[in-house]
């Protein structure tokens, strides 16, 4: 397929691209990967929390997608199905890494640890500052990793990926009520972990 047509084809819906991939059209697969690569990359990184593993697992997600696309019947949105593959592969990888004691929290340098409250205060005082600094990101990532795996996954899907509850229920295979209660518990746990760094005025 000509490169000049790629932009035109980018307007295709997911379903159309899936149909074309099933027919063996290579460009459609490239478009699907390009469309979702950053979302998958982010999701993997936030759930796994190991930068060295992120890219490899994100690639594996799309390889698995390509292999099992024939089984996709369109019962749910394509993105939901892709997220389900991602979450399942993340869970498997976490188990694998846990067995090998590879999984460990990211370290924050001692100097940065003492300054962290200042970083947090500054970030909260400047809500217009959209992105957090690296140290603050590392802190939140570390606290996320300290959460139970199931809680972390739901928290990431809801509060970072901003997915609707119904999609999260489909991705995780949990009942809607369970998703909600787990999310509230996860938020509560994270808030308690973050408490020492937060300056609430009360």
């Amino acid at each position: 397929m000509q490169t000049s047509n790629v932009e035109e084809q980018a307007t295709f819906s997911d379903d159309e691209l899936v149909r074309r991939v099933k027919k063996g059209e290579d460009f459609a697969f490239s478009l699907l990967v390009r469309r979702y690569q950053n979302r998958v990359f982010n999701l993997v990184h936030r759930i796994l929390g190991i930068p060295e593993e992120t890219e490899d697992l994100a690639q594996e997600v799309f390889v698995t997608l390509h292999r099992s696309l024939e089984q996709f019947r369109g019962d749910c949105a394509f993105s939901t199905w892709l997220y389900r593959i991602t979450v399942n592969l993340c869970k498997n990888r976490l188990k694998y890494l846990f067995r090998r004691n590879f999984h460990k929290a990211q370290e924050i340098s001692e100097t940065a640890e003492t300054d962290i409250q200042t970083h947090v205060s500054m970030a909260l005082a400047n809500p217009e500052q959209q992105l957090l600094g690296r140290e603050l990101e590392t802190l939140i990532q570390r606290e996320l990793l300290a959460l139970d795996e199931e809680h972390r996954i739901i928290l990431v899907l809801r509060d970072i990926e901003h997915l609707p509850y119904e999609h999260i229920a489909e991705i995780t295979g949990l009942a809607l009520g369970t998703v909600k209660s787990r999310l509230h518990r996860a938020r509560s746990a994270l808030r308690q972990q973050m408490q020492p760094y937060l300056a609430t005025g009360a």
Binding site: F41, L124, L131, I140, Q141, A202
Partner: peptide, 23 residues
């Protein structure tokens, strides 16, 4: 308030990008 702050920090986590040769 602390819950609101925690969520605000989470939502401002930078978004990662896949490498350019990912596809």
């Amino acid at each position: 308030e602390s819950l609101r702050q925690t969520l605000s920090l989470m939502q401002r986590l930078p978004s990662l990008e896949a490498p350019s040769d990912f596809v």
